[in-house]
């Protein structure tokens, strides 16, 4: 059994509990042990780098320290935004001068030996895909989905070092393994407005509406994401989009771990899919998946 340090991040303990729950369940089913990073803190997300370079590096760096103490080498991160910050600092730590400065801010040594990977990467190696294929209980046959990676998972490629920055494929491979039909569309890595929804709701509604319309036009019945920010912008804003633009998309938005969990036989209830603000259960029930 491989063991990973697991950094849930604030969203997975708050608005994206279903992502946390489904991630833990599917990892268990696939034989991956997740050990939560001890006393982890917020990585600073989209705010720290807005004001301070050193805060933006030091907040995520503090989360790498306990991993070595836990005797682990690799950290897996479900949230794409946290992943971007943690991966960025793990690259920056290779520079001894930067490492010394971060050490000074933390008041502790950092080595930068921990490898950081996104959960979607951890769960889409060929080995895991083969294993998942062998464990499928309920194939997602006929379910037409658009895979949405968002901006931060693959970009900038020099730092993210994950998949293709314009046309990534890992989530597509996973969904096809589970029996889904993956539609072609051109918005896989377009940005949803990230952290702007509170301060500039208008912009996020506009961007989310474009994404939802494009997925619908491509024939998707649902969008699959790997980021709590993307999920929240697309899932929770459909009512406001209807109010402002009159478009009633009723487009279910899933975390990839939820669909993986369903295929592995977990009931929708246990995966907390009822937590979504846009109804996702009707579609699943119609297909005998919930």
């Amino acid at each position: 059994m491989s063991t990973y340090a697991y950094y849930p991040g604030c969203s997975l303990h708050g608005t994206a509990k279903e992502y946390d729950r489904s991630a833990r369940l599917v990892c268990q089913a696939l034989g991956l042990e997740l050990r939560e990073v001890e006393d982890w803190n917020c990585c600073g997300a989209s705010s720290a780098h807005m004001v301070s370079h050193w805060l933006a590096l030091s907040l995520p760096a503090r989360n790498l320290q306990p991993v070595e103490k836990m005797g682990l080498e690799t950290m897996t991160v479900p949230c794409a935004a946290c992943y971007a910050r943690l991966k960025d600092v793990s690259c920056e730590l290779k520079d001894p001068e930067v490492r010394a400065k971060i050490g000074r801010v933390l008041g502790d040594q950092v080595t930068g030996r921990v490898t950081v990977e996104p959960l979607i990467g951890t769960l889409t190696t060929q080995e895991i895909l083969d294993k998942a294929a062998s464990l499928i209980v309920k194939p997602l046959t006929g379910l037409k989905v658009a895979t949405y990676y968002g901006c931060l998972l693959t970009r900038p490629p020099k730092v993210a070092q994950f998949d293709d920055p314009e046309n990534p494929q890992s989530m597509d491979r996973l969904l096809r393994t589970l029996g889904s039909e993956v539609v072609e569309w051109y918005f896989k890595t377009e940005c949803c407005g990230a952290s702007l929804p509170v301060a500039r709701t208008d912009i996020v509604l506009d961007l989310s509406r474009k994404l939802l319309a494009a997925a619908k036009k491509a024939g998707a019945e649902a969008i699959v994401t790997a980021c709590p920010m993307c999920h929240s912008n697309l899932d929770s804003r459909q009512g406001e989009i209807r109010g402002r633009y009159g478009d009633d998309f009723k487009m279910p938005i899933f975390f990839f771990t939820e669909l993986l969990g369903l295929a592995l036989g977990y009931p929708a209830r246990e995966l907390l899919i009822a937590n979504h603000l846009t109804d996702a259960l009707s579609l699943l029930q119609g297909r005998g998946l919930a």
Binding site: S47, A48, R200
Partner: peptide, 23 residues
């Protein structure tokens, strides 16, 4: 964009106080 700055200030204020985001 005053509201954008307010958002980030409030966000970081909470992280400074609790260590994690409190939505």
């Amino acid at each position: 964009e005053r509201t954008v700055k307010v958002f980030h200030d409030v966000f970081l204020g909470l992280v400074e106080r609790f260590g994690r985001l409190y939505e």
